[in-house]
């Protein structure tokens, strides 16, 4: 019982991160029908920009960023670092779209796909250079105090065990939920959102109706990158040992978020969130109850199974191609 609850808590936190990243993949796909392989590198940038800012700002509030047991700074510092990372990554997302993808708008989709891989490699290898983030792993100073909010003692086989729910996990789930609700509102209740959905439905017809297509596409990229930056920030809070930008960790994280988007139905915003939690649940419960050796196997096996049964994903709708 206690272990079930503990695993559920981890699922919620990890699922929120997958969902935030999956949203970026799904929004870009919805509008441009291509997979932005550089998206996971925006997550990396989000995490490492947060780290760099934290290192700079810690002395300003009288704390030692190099002391791993330094007390947590006031909450506003964390919030402003989150906002700064989000703004920086939105701008980077805008620049990438403007200079790497927009010139290829009329080119075959494969060209854009290959460009995306190129952008991804560029970001990874730039990030590794010593004047950027460097080739070594770094420790993210604690922005939140490592307090336990609840410690519940639940009965389990072989005696009672504790369920520990920390502030960090609650913050991750809370921040993600706020962001996802805001996105839902933006996409379905505002004019920009309506324009995004229109462009996603038919790009040329939207242009004929007077929708500034290029600007809407830029907004979409900025929005996706903002969510990725938030995911990177939260990721660095949860896993403070930050791996270098070209490390497999990040590739795997991006891949799983992409799988989440596909499972939920790529192009579908609610599907991406659902997919994120489904992936996290399969991964965490599979690792706990079956065997931890096959953790990634569960995720990718589920992907294959869902693609066989529902090729358009859990919430995706089949679109009939006009001939």
């Amino acid at each position: 019982m206690a272990d079930f609850a503990q695993t559920l808590m981890t699922t919620l936190a990890v699922g929120s991160l997958y969902a935030l990243i999956a949203l970026g993949y799904t929004m870009v796909y919805g509008i441009l029908k291509f997979i932005n392989f550089a998206h996971s590198d925006i997550v990396v940038l989000g995490a490492w920009i947060s780290f760099t800012l934290t290192r700079w700002l810690f002395p300003a509030v009288g704390l030692d960023a190099h002391n791993p047991d330094s007390p947590a700074p006031p909450l506003w510092l964390g919030a402003s670092i989150l906002i700064a990372a989000v703004v920086a990554c939105s701008l980077i997302g805008f620049v990438i779209e403007r200079f790497a993808y927009r010139p290829l708008r009329k080119a075959p989709r494969l060209n854009v796909l290959i460009t995306a891989i190129g952008v991804s490699l560029l970001l990874q290898n730039l990030g590794q250079l010593s004047f950027m983030f460097g080739p070594s792993p770094q420790k993210m100073p604690a922005l939140l105090s490592n307090v336990e909010l609840w410690r519940l003692s639940l009965p389990s086989s072989g005696g009672a065990r504790n369920v520990v729910i920390g502030l960090v996990d609650v913050m991750i789930v809370g921040t993600s939920a706020v962001l996802m609700i805001a996105l839902e509102f933006l996409v379905f209740r505002t004019k920009i959102g309506t324009a995004m959905r229109a462009v996603s439905y038919d790009l040329e017809a939207s242009a004929l109706m007077g929708i500034p297509v290029d600007r809407i596409i830029s907004y979409t990229f900025m929005l996706g990158s903002a969510l990725a930056a938030a995911a990177g920030f939260l990721y660095a809070l949860k896993y403070p040992g930050l791996n270098q930008p070209a490390h497999t960790t990040w590739v795997l994280l991006g891949l799983k978020a992409f799988v989440a988007a596909v499972i939920g139905g790529i192009g579908n915003v609610r599907g991406a969130v659902l997919g994120g939690f489904v992936i996290a649940a399969v991964e965490q419960f599979g690792a706990y109850y079956l065997s931890s050796s096959y953790r990634d196997v569960y995720v990718f096996a589920l992907l294959i199974a869902i693609l066989l049964v529902r090729p358009s994903g859990l919430l995706g709708s089949t679109v009939r191609e006009k001939v």
Binding site: Q6, T7, G241, N243, T249, V251, L252, Q284, S292, R295
Partner: peptide, 9 residues
């Protein structure tokens, strides 16, 4: 596996 960051399970 190398690259995993979550060991909770």
């Amino acid at each position: 596996t190398e690259g995993d960051q979550d060991f909770s399970a």
